[in-house]
């Protein structure tokens, strides 16, 4: 890749990320809903534990898991389904006409979403922590930060891979995407430690990076975390790095493949399918 091409790609990435970082904050109601929305399941599930007189760390598990739903929702609707919206509004055609690869658009979207989601998760977690009075026992701030960042990287790489499907498919993929909400909240242990599922099911769930990210963060942030660990933190971090690389390569491959199919079958501009 020449320097000119590299600069062009970087400018493309920044252009798409800019909308996500700056643009979304121009609509205050979005910001309110994005912070407020994850709080609803957090409160509901925290009250379930409260009604059972469970230890306060369990409430902490729920609050962390609930805050992380913002990431998953963003990946599903802000990343994976984004090309669906872009096609419906006519932007997808413009992306294709731009003198930059579609991969740059996807990376820009991922970086922009990752950046804005980072702060939303932290704010939601802090609000939840304040409401329910949770005490944290941080084993290592550095590793907690690293795990959080790696989780975001791995999850958004998965989102990039999922986005490719919307170059080809429409309402069917949109509906199937809705299946990735509650079942993923269940499998990834958003509201209880994934160890409770048992190792075989937990191993399958580990393909969703949030599963391991959440488990590692709970181990690093709560007193009862290590007692409910699925795998040691080091192993989980290593797997997260591997998953990030695999999903990035997968995203590149699928994007090329499905873009070609979309062009050949004339589906890139097809609306209401």
């Amino acid at each position: 890749m020449s320097t000119d091409e590299l600069i062009k790609n970087l400018r493309g990435i920044w252009a798409r990320a800019y909308v996500r970082i700056i643009g979304v904050n121009r609509e205050p109601s979005w910001l309110i809903f994005e912070l407020f929305f994850p709080l609803l399941p957090i409160c509901a599930f925290a009250f379930v534990y409260k009604s059972m007189n469970a230890p306060s760390d369990y409430l902490g598990f729920v609050i962390l898991g609930g805050a992380m739903t913002a990431i998953w929702m963003n990946v599903l609707w802000g990343m994976a389904a984004q090309f669906f919206w872009e096609r419906e509004s006519g932007n997808l055609t413009l992306y294709m006409l731009c003198p930059m690869p579609t991969m740059a658009v996807l990376i820009g979207m991922a970086i922009g979403s990752g950046f804005s989601t980072f702060f939303r998760v932290i704010i939601t977690f802090m609000i939840g922590k304040f409401i329910f009075g949770i005490t944290l026992h941080i084993a290592s701030y550095w590793w907690l930060f690293v795990t959080f960042m790696l989780t975001i990287a791995a999850v958004f790489s998965l989102g990039m891979m999922m986005a490719s499907f919307f170059l080809l498919y429409g309402r069917d993929a949109w509906n199937i995407l809705t299946v990735f909400m509650e079942p993923v909240f269940f499998l990834s242990g958003f509201y209880f430690p994934v160890k409770t599922l048992g190792y075989p099911l937990g191993a399958i769930a580990s393909l969703i990076p949030i599963t391991l990210g959440l488990d590692a963060m709970r181990q690093l942030a709560f007193k009862l975390g290590p007692a409910t660990a699925f795998l040691p933190v080091g192993v989980e971090i290593t797997i997260l790095i591997i998953l990030t690389i695999i999903y990035l390569i997968g995203a590149k491959y699928l994007l090329n493949k499905l873009e070609y199919l979309g062009r050949r079958e004339g589906r890139l501009t097809l609306r209401w399918q």
Binding site: F185, F186, F192, P193
Partner: peptide
């Protein structure tokens, strides 16, 4: 899935 989330929360707690 929604049902199982709560079942496993009960089992865990």
């Amino acid at each position: 899935a929604q049902l199982f989330i709560i079942i496993f929360m009960f089992r865990f707690a």
